[in-house]
Design a protein around this nucleic acid. Sequence first.
DNA 1: GATTAAACGAGACGGTACGTCGAGTCTTGAA
DNA 2: TTCAAGACTCGACGTACCGTCTCGTTTAATC
Lengths: 216, 216, 216, 216
Amino acid sequence: MANEGIAARRGRPRDSAVDERVLDVAWDLLLTGGYAALNVDEVAERAAVAKTTLYRRWPTKDHLALAVVTRMIPFALVPDTGDICHDLAEFAVGMAESLHQYRTTGGSDGVSPGLAGELVAAAGRHPDIGDLIRALHARRHAMALARLQRASEREGLRTDVDHGLLIDQISGPMYYRALITGAAIDRNYAERLVRAVLDGAIIAPARAGYLGTGST
Amino acid sequence: MANEGIAARRGRPRDSAVDERVLDVAWDLLLTGGYAALNVDEVAERAAVAKTTLYRRWPTKDHLALAVVTRMIPFALVPDTGDICHDLAEFAVGMAESLHQYRTTGGSDGVSPGLAGELVAAAGRHPDIGDLIRALHARRHAMALARLQRASEREGLRTDVDHGLLIDQISGPMYYRALITGAAIDRNYAERLVRAVLDGAIIAPARAGYLGTGST
Amino acid sequence: MANEGIAARRGRPRDSAVDERVLDVAWDLLLTGGYAALNVDEVAERAAVAKTTLYRRWPTKDHLALAVVTRMIPFALVPDTGDICHDLAEFAVGMAESLHQYRTTGGSDGVSPGLAGELVAAAGRHPDIGDLIRALHARRHAMALARLQRASEREGLRTDVDHGLLIDQISGPMYYRALITGAAIDRNYAERLVRAVLDGAIIAPARAGYLGTGST
Amino acid sequence: MANEGIAARRGRPRDSAVDERVLDVAWDLLLTGGYAALNVDEVAERAAVAKTTLYRRWPTKDHLALAVVTRMIPFALVPDTGDICHDLAEFAVGMAESLHQYRTTGGSDGVSPGLAGELVAAAGRHPDIGDLIRALHARRHAMALARLQRASEREGLRTDVDHGLLIDQISGPMYYRALITGAAIDRNYAERLVRAVLDGAIIAPARAGYLGTGST
DNA sequence: GATTAAACGAGACGGTACGTCGAGTCTTGAA
DNA sequence: TTCAAGACTCGACGTACCGTCTCGTTTAATC
């Protein structure tokens, strides 16, 4: 997102320390007071950076916010331990943790969508931000798809179920709760969700795997 | 949202025509230019209403937007025809249609979250808006739960599946696509989703019901 | 300012207690926070009076303010003890005291014109208020003129000096200091002023009168 | 009022053309409709200046008004021709002319205090405006004092009269009439006033000077 | 006693302007 | 060229306060 021109360009080179200072400050503001507290002037002042410099790197406050967030909040990845139940559950838990972080920035009440909501809105305001976010999710989707593919081949996942749909059934409820209903998204919910989704999608033997039968 | 106290209220009563004019104008602006075009001054002027009056009823632009939207975009309800597959599919389709409307206000590209994203952000900015939205969804959730309960009793829905989770698995992906991935949410997707979710949740005979086997 | 038509009018008569309550409250607000604190809504609420009622009596906040002020701040009159020096000095001192009161409303610093300035502005905004104020001053002017006339006849005041001018030379500096320069207006200044003005206007014997030679 | 730092300041320098445009427009509005017509939004628009820029220079509408006025209405100075009678008369006439300008802005009736009244009120509302105005008058006062001092030395002005008081006796009535009584303040009045004040303050020979005996 | 005229309390309403906030651009001088 | 500083534009928001209007209620004089 920042710079990296290849050929040594004329003139004074960009100070890479700037990126760091700015993103740190911005993250701090986001943590403290949420999106509303992310004020460009404030960021510039605290980071001892000119607004010009700032805008040279991020064309918009929204872009800055996205940069901060993608840097600080890990994007849930899909592990591959060989146990699809376990891996999907971990995937869901990672997602839950990310979303929880979004929720709790700005001293929020833990129910409101918080930062995540603002980023969704930002995606609506700036097509390129939308593209970025969608690309990010597409990457994750592809990763999950690949994992499911391997599960089909090795772990008895039914091949007649729509893998994409299956991923939606896991990711969707997480975001739904985070953004809309405000319901809790913890490890317990993540695991129950994965179990429910996989139930019926896996041929017998796998059913007795990692997640057991569990109860709420 | 407006008034209707029962006991003879003192003072000049609120002019209910104001609500109508304002909401109409606001809706028009939203349709035309999206959330960014919803300008309080403009609304006031076009509706021939003083800004003070406007702020007396909706304390914030966000509140006004929510009012407009809840009035103009029908909230998907859960029908009850006796066929749970069909009913849930209709429910999902209704939701899809609502979300599609959110997406396409303001001449959007049909991929970005559009108005819905802004409302989610608004829910994060104003606790009371969050509460309202959550209450709305809770009402819908309860309605769906009741429908599933009846399905357990009459239509062979397995009783050992978590009904709440089941609803999340339907609503979640819809919102996920609407707000995050930008993927299409049409009748086809809605039906596939419901089929996938119910598959395994219903005891044999029902499987051959309304939705058939279908294909992407 | 209030009412009391002569012939008993039809309908409910005005409640004279209202005037009192309102003026008391208004005066209190003026004292506490100056003209800026004189808020019509606040007055109405504190006096437990409807704004309608209030506006039925004083067509404007400015009118109300004037009413309050003319009720609470005594208008300097011209005494007649037979000693023109003494009487004019007392007159000036009375004026000084009134102006001091204006100055010190609203926790002022004692230099700013305070309430008096606002009333002057009000006189500029509403012709009728201007007329009222001018009439008030005209009345005082006439009174002073009459006093000077008697001084001409009995106390050796030179008849070739312009009495009107003489009054201006006394009143003027008082208001000038109160409204413009912020200089002190106390008894000392009042007396020095009168002495200076009368000096030369009075035939010898009076010069050794009430005010002596004084210094400062 | 504008800038003029000496040391080369960092950052974009203030555009001095802005001051000019704004003050011109504001003056125009004042002339046309008086203080009530001095509308910040209007000024900004007509001067093609952002409101923010405007408020950066004048923190308040009142401050702007004062700036306009001090720029456009010449402040009466004290000439020195060697004839104290003549000079003071000119001084008074200058003051009269200024005050007349204040009175006649906004198509006033020529009796009400007009703009001057509003400025007096402004001085009461904002301590710094009061300070500015008082400083302005203090400067004039000092100038007049100096002139009187020279008159004492060269023109036979009695040294035992209080020069400050003498100035008050000239300035005071002018402002008194302008702000309070609404009486005319023309050259004739100014000259009569000066004559009356100096009469008795000057040792014989000077009495037959510039102003003669005059009549109303 | 019924009617009627006016005052009153409460509070919504219209209108106008003010001052503020924040985003993003532009113009300097210095590195 | 980049950077720091800071002025500038643009646009909207929310607030404040004034004075009017519309109810329903109360008080008294009149029929």
